[in-house]
Design a protein around this nucleic acid. Sequence first.
DNA 1: CCCTATGATAAATTTCCCTTACCACTCTGA
DNA 2: TCAGAGTGGTAAGGGAAATTTATCATAGGG
Lengths: 293, 293
Amino acid sequence: MVAELKITPLRYVLAVVDHGGFHAASRYLHRTQPALSMAIRELENRLGEALFEKGAKATLTPYGSYCVPRFRELINQHDRLSRELQARAAKEAGQLDMAVVPSVASRLMPKLLSEFVSRYPGIKVGLHDGNADFVREQVISGQVDIGITSLWGLEEELLFHPLFHDEVGVVCRDDHPLAERQTLTWQALETESLIGNGTSRLLQGTAAKSLLEMHALYISNMISLTATLVAGMGVTTLPRLAFPQEYERLRFIELAEPRVSREVGLIRRKGASLSPAAQAMESFIIESLGAGQ
Amino acid sequence: MVAELKITPLRYVLAVVDHGGFHAASRYLHRTQPALSMAIRELENRLGEALFEKGAKATLTPYGSYCVPRFRELINQHDRLSRELQARAAKEAGQLDMAVVPSVASRLMPKLLSEFVSRYPGIKVGLHDGNADFVREQVISGQVDIGITSLWGLEEELLFHPLFHDEVGVVCRDDHPLAERQTLTWQALETESLIGNGTSRLLQGTAAKSLLEMHALYISNMISLTATLVAGMGVTTLPRLAFPQEYERLRFIELAEPRVSREVGLIRRKGASLSPAAQAMESFIIESLGAGQ
DNA sequence: CCCTATGATAAATTTCCCTTACCACTCTGA
DNA sequence: TCAGAGTGGTAAGGGAAATTTATCATAGGG
């Protein structure tokens, strides 16, 4: 059975000691003098021993002298903890991990992250990239706080906040016959050597689904895919954001018929709420990408 | 500005976590469930962030998971301190120093101390011996908590609690002419070679005061004094307690006219109250020596 | 010697915590 | 499918605890 030492009376004792009297302390604490007298006496009763000499003005007993530094230590610990937790709640510190699809990671995250860390200097961000399945897994398993990806279907245990639509188009080398076209229909691709990739399943359920069966080649790795395209070995379909702009010889042609797009958005676990830091990131991303872009 | 984290709600949070639910925790804490709900919500508001998921049964938010171990740490620290201070107040632990006159130190303290430490195993005792002036100085300066000595006069800044009277008698070798006497008067000493010692001033203000002027020899050190007496070089006066029983050849003869005695007692500073440990020692000494002995 | 400082005390008041009573929701087993 | 027991949340009232107001006794300083 431990007596409950409330923090406030301990603070009173320290104030009396530091200010050299009950009246001075009461002014400092914005309390009246009897409040201190009674609170401290209550504390003394609880401890079973007087802290201040009776009849002397604010003089500590030996027991009191023993207690004061320990009170101070406990209060310091308390205040440090209180400040730390509040700061963390106020998103001034913390840590978050996110999983992001490669196209977003390479094209959007650099600018986003640099702005984020300058706005929230205390927050540590871990960025993990991988394909849509990887992102989904990471979020569901709780390995990361939030993810940015496009969903293939509705997920029971995930919340999806849409950010933007990303149009699917055809990518080919600049000397390819299709390269000069402004728009394409799926029929125009029937005779092409179409290379499949991780985003190809976006075509599922659309008028262009027959193209899926044409894949002679399937390349999931982006570097390999672009190298193959640059080598002129065929064409592929990609969302615009996934189109690697840095390759001068590659062209992106919009697919007009059917219009296919993926909806890129933010995902998080349904049951669990976000940590303050992750919440800050979520709000930041929605604010940055939700409207404009 | 630091928010005041009260200990009790923190305890509630831990109970809910440890017992896996508000109801289970409320049973454990002997509180009703709404009490926990409201106290914890109050705490959440204070921190600015939820600790438990809403709509889920007692599931911690990421922020909550971060907080819980820190709450536990603070509460452990609190409880440890509370127990320690209460134990100290209950005299189960602590430390005290006392200054004692040599006769008391050698004749009474050994038995007293062995009983004391067996009754209060946690208390550390420092025992310092010296003459009455030394004891007085040590107590007044606060070097020691309490002293046992006899006072020569009333002291303004000391509290004196009498313990027992110690009769002054004459000490001589067993072959001395006075050795066979049962009692003596001061006149019988006029022709003797009287050796003075630290206790001689007890005779001041008594009928035997003329003896003080007869001192040809003054020896303050007890070992030297007894050696001198054993050598048959004279007689001296000593309180009975100061008479060294271990010397077979020395005899103690009561002084009947005048009866001189010192009043041995406990002294402590008037303004300052005692530490719990010192208080325990004081009560113990009074209990042991006040009545009997 | 008055005046002002100290802290202690008593009663009134405000504040806060807890309980009782009730609701909404989810899960389980018949 | 539906009753029943589990979860936790909400509202209103009571009571204890903390605080204030008012007063007192005492001690030190001009």
